[in-house]
Amino acid sequence: MPYFEFLETYGGRFLEGSLITVVQFVLATIVSVVVALSFGLMRMSSNLAVKSFATVYIEIFRGTSLLVQLFWIFFVLPLFGITLDKFTAGFIAVGMNMGAYGAELVRGAILAVPKGQWEAAKAINMTPAQRMRRIILPQAFVIMLPPWGNLVIEIMKGTALVALISVTDLMFEARQINISTFLSVQTFGTALIIYYVFARFLITPFMRFFERSMARKIGRA
């Protein structure tokens, strides 16, 4: 079968799969940002209980595989009365996993804000909460954007695993098409190219643009 004909026949399914991948990606990114911010800040808390809880969460999610976490959330959690449908389990697992990595980026960026900034904020008598919100976080945000650019690509790649719990994303469609056609080069090759274009020509340029405009906004550029 010529490649053109292949695309004509299966293009629709690739497209449908890609759409699901995009939705999974966006939702997983939102979850991971929320997780990263809350656990990153909790990790820096002076309250020992809060800090330990965050540390345990981060170490567990970074110390085991995303695939294990995904299967655990989808197959084991229902035994404890928490049943998520496969679509939700998918982006929640990816988001919680990547959020643990993001939490470390948040912490690292906050620590990278010069000590003088904390002191200056204290010298104008700000409360700890004001200091964090008004002075430290805006600067930490700009510091952590470049590493988040890489993490966001990892999130996108991570969503491919949701195919293994039968979410009909791009990965899933590619596998189905492969099973029925045995045209593996065409099938998996097409899927690879779609992921590549998505990462390299959509996500990365967007993140770069975001970085630059944020840097300009705080007068760093």
Binding site: P114, G116, E119, A120, A123, I135
Partner: peptide, 13 residues
């Protein structure tokens, strides 16, 4: 009390 620092510590943003 108010303070000025060696390295200014202005808020860059």
């Amino acid at each position: 009390i108010g303070m000025c620092f060696q390295h200014f510590n202005l808020f860059p943003h």
